[in-house]
């Protein structure tokens, strides 16, 4: 269940261009978070909370890791927080990834930019259940690449950059045909990437995580809806999602 919590910043590091990794301590959120969920962070001087994915959880040390990019004033301000500071957070929020592994052998993770973080905790959890994991990570350029070695610890990892400054040049979709067989894919990233992937892999079972500007973040205000082909015709990204079966949402 979602709860209002204080999270203590254990550490904060810049790990790539404009990209911050923060380790946050809180027993309630570390105990209850599942891959694909997010925390909704209140940033001083801002009316709306910022949704940031849970990138990793360490249940023994009661910590949650987030990775975020400095984009506008909220994430800029958040990046100025120091170890020892507390964050005012709602979480764990939303519905995470489908992780039932019955009959599952190999999964493909596809992350683009700030869509990479939720793939990490997911991949790590699946690998622990002896699922074979393949990762495709897309970044703008070499300076933006992060967590490659961490993904390599549990998966065969392909990195692509838009400008070719690191790994293969192009988009994540250009390497997917080369990764071999897989039973299911999971993806998070910019909308054009998700559109391309769901089109290309329309025959496969897939789960995607969506982004939209949110109001309340708890499912009350109808700001972040997405059209679906379910009976109701729509779902709320903050509370029904952010993860959806690729086939149910209309992008």
């Amino acid at each position: 269940m979602i709860s209002k919590q204080r999270m203590k910043i254990v550490s904060t590091n810049q790990i790539a261009k404009d990209t911050i990794e923060m380790v946050l301590k809180n027993s309630y959120i570390s105990e209850n978070a599942i891959p694909g969920q997010f925390i909704h962070i209140l940033v001083e001087g801002h009316t709306l909370r910022r949704p940031i994915s849970i990138a990793d959880v360490d249940k023994d040390n009661e910590t949650v890791t987030i990775l975020f990019k400095k984009l506008g004033s909220g994430t800029e301000k958040l990046s100025e927080s120091k170890a020892g500071d507390f964050l005012n957070v709602l979480g764990p929020s939303g519905n995470g990834f489908e992780t039932s592994t019955e009959g599952l052998h190999t999964v493909l993770l596809i992350g683009g930019g700030i869509g990479v973080p939720p793939m990490y905790y997911l991949g790590k959890s699946l690998a622990k259940q002896n699922i074979h994991v393949i990762s495709v990570l897309g970044f703008q350029s070499k300076d933006h690449v992060f967590y490659e070695e961490k993904f390599q610890q549990f998966s065969k990892t392909y990195v692509v950059t838009n400008d070719g400054s690191y790994g293969d040049k192009g988009f994540v979709t250009s390497v997917i045909p080369n990764v071999g067989e897989f039973d299911r894919y999971y993806s998070c990233g910019p909308l054009p990437m998700l559109k391309a992937i769901t089109n290309e892999l329309s025959e496969k079972e897939g789960f995607i995580s969506l982004e939209e500007r949110m109001g309340c973040g708890v499912g009350a205000c109808f700001a972040c809806v997405v059209p679906t082909n379910t009976e109701k015709g729509y779902k709320k990204i903050c509370s029904d999602g952010p993860v959806f079966a690729a086939r149910e949402v209309i992008l």
Binding site: H46, T47, L48, G74, E212, R213, M214, G215, C221, F222, A223, C224, V225, V226, P227, G233, Y234
Partner: peptide
């Protein structure tokens, strides 16, 4: 069903919505 998204934006000391 309401309006297309984005439906909200943040402003100085407030927000805009068109749900």
């Amino acid at each position: 069903f309401g309006n297309p998204t984005p439906r909200v934006a943040e402003t100085a000391s407030g927000m805009l919505n068109a749900i």
